[in-house]
Design a protein around this nucleic acid. Structure first.
Lengths: 329, 329
DNA sequence: CTGAAAGCGCTAACAT
DNA sequence: ATGTTAGCGCTTTCAG
């Protein structure tokens, strides 16, 4: 008894508009190579509005062979304020092309990405970084195109982030760097990659490799790490992200160490609060909105068979220089 | 030439297992009232694994009449670290019941929620707070069940949050409260509701209504607001959320005001960084994981026709008392 | 216990 | 320019 008002179908619309189902389909998809007189068109659209008709996705995909649904896989760790704007841009750009975006939090216990993909019958699955080979092939077997913000065989953006942090610090005159690793198990992989970037920059500048320390998100632990770095004559540290950086700054305050005089600190992400840390945090961040738009283009390209190439230039992270690293030494 | 390896279908599996398509369907859905001999069962499952077969969602939904897809609508403003754990729990609990979760960022320009719902043919659409009437009915017309963390006609949880902030402060002895409104246009509605809760608590305690001030996320603006509250003999302020609260704390530092001695501050959300503000922030927050699990139960209830009642008790936010409000006056 | 057959709502040839 | 028809891949009566 809950929902006997059966949902409207093409047939209903066709009847209401006095045309055949196929005509309805033609106007709704403005199928190329069909010239529908404006008058008929309007009649159909009126009927659609009247009945508040919405094509049933499953039927449409089944018949058409593709769903026009884009599934975005977000690593459950990198959800922050930034990702929101990214998704917004992405969704909007896709919508303009008639594509519907839904997202899936990866890495959770539930159904695997390929399962979700099959369940909603996604036409393309997008992600920030490439999936592992097994997932990728399962996805492809499930009939989806794959698109990423970072090209599969190309530059590791994650690593690049660390490199930029280090380069900024080195340019400021620092000769011995530290790296603040997050405690979280799941973050280690990304963190390791970023640390690698820092190490690259150090070695290129002829410096010792960075001194990486595990840092729990606790004030005492942060203070301890800060003292340790000082003892080892580290003068600047790259933090895994802004959260770690801000926590470190708090730990330093606790240990009566000043930034950047005693230790310069640099974050990643440019979260709103990085402006309010004491001192304001220097950080490196992507223009996520731009990335979102470009990813959408890549999706459209992949759907139309064009090579899904992103211009790497647009994906360059940007350095935001603030007080936590201001001092030149 | 991109994807001629046509996707496996039930027919393929049936052939490989030497049974009929319907039998395959029976074992895959362990259809009630069908007794399949274990031997056949295994043969089918083996074929499934061999072909890496995944039922095509669209075909399945079309035939079965329901998709078993749950669409979660997240307001694009309230994406934070907390929501992640919430979604994780929600997705996991749903998965146990054979339901697939995908999420949609609401409030963005793209396709409307009902459109997305129709596109993926969701069986149920879930949200934190109830949708407006128009959206709700469109959704229902599209054949979806609706489920929220907060019951439609029941207690406004958002308001409750503000009330709890205020009650904590009042219990600490504060007699004149301030409220820090976020500048963001889109946040105003929620903020207004939370402010309402603060006002409720004040009036019940026989106090003047709270002094609400707009607060831009800028150090100078925050400092100005803090001074203004002092001038008006406000001794404690409820912030819209932790971000605003931490920013305010920074503004106070800038204005050489101490918390909680000069002004006590209370946030909402319990973000990780609230532990690292100076002083550590008191805050009120939900146990989002619990909320996620309960929402999943509600979904399952709604799908099985049971009344989708949540026990409101489980949805009570919790006060986290830290140094920013510690002083009793 | 298993198979045959109908049909879910829509699109896309193919007719007209 | 519009209507007719045949499926898309799956579930689900209904027979055997």
């Amino acid at each position: 008894m809950t929902r006997p008002p059966k949902r409207a179908t093409v047939a209903d619309v066709a009847r209401a508009a006095g045309v055949s189902p196929s005509t309805v389909s033609f106007v709704l998809n403005d199928t190329p190579g069909q010239s529908i007189p404006e008058e008929t068109r309007q009649r159909v659209l009126a009927a659609v509005r009247l009945l508040d008709y919405r094509p049933r996705g499953s039927a449409r995909s089944l018949a058409a062979g593709r769903s026009n649904i884009v599934l975005l896989s977000i690593p459950h760790l990198s959800i922050g304020p930034g990702i929101t704007r990214f998704v917004e841009q992405f969704a909007t750009a896709l919508a303009d092309a008639g594509l519907t975006l839904v997202t899936h939090l990866a890495g959770t216990p539930g159904p695997s990405l390929p399962d979700v993909c099959a369940a909603i019958d996604a036409s393309v699955v997008a992600g920030l970084d490439p999936f592992d080979e097994e997932t990728s092939s399962a996805l492809r077997r499930a009939g989806a195109d794959l698109v990423f913000t970072t090209e599969v065989e190309a530059q590791p953006t994650i690593r690049r982030t660390g490199r930029l942090q280090a380069e900024h610090l080195i340019a400021l005159g620092h000769r011995r760097l530290g790296y603040a690793m997050p405690e979280n198990r799941q973050l280690r992989k990304i963190a390791g990659e970023r640390l690698g970037g820092v190490a690259d920059a150090c070695s290129e500048a002829g410096l010792e490799p960075p001194l990486a320390l595990d840092t729990k998100l606790e004030i005492a632990a942060m203070a301890r790490a800060a003292r340790r770095w000082r003892r080892e004559s580290v003068t600047a540290v790259c933090a895994y992200n802004d959260e770690v950086a801000i926590a470190l700054l708090a730990g330093m305050r606790h240990a009566r160490l000043a930034a950047p005089a005693d230790l310069a600190v640099m974050g990643v992400d440019n979260v709103p609060l990085s402006l309010f840390s004491d001192p304001p945090l220097s950080t490196v961040a992507f223009d996520l909105e731009k990335v979102g738009r470009h990813l959408a283009e890549a999706v459209m390209g992949s759907l139309s068979g064009r090579a899904p190439r992103l211009s790497p230039a647009s994906l360059e992270p940007e350095i935001i220089h603030r007080a936590s690293t201001s001092l030149t030494r």
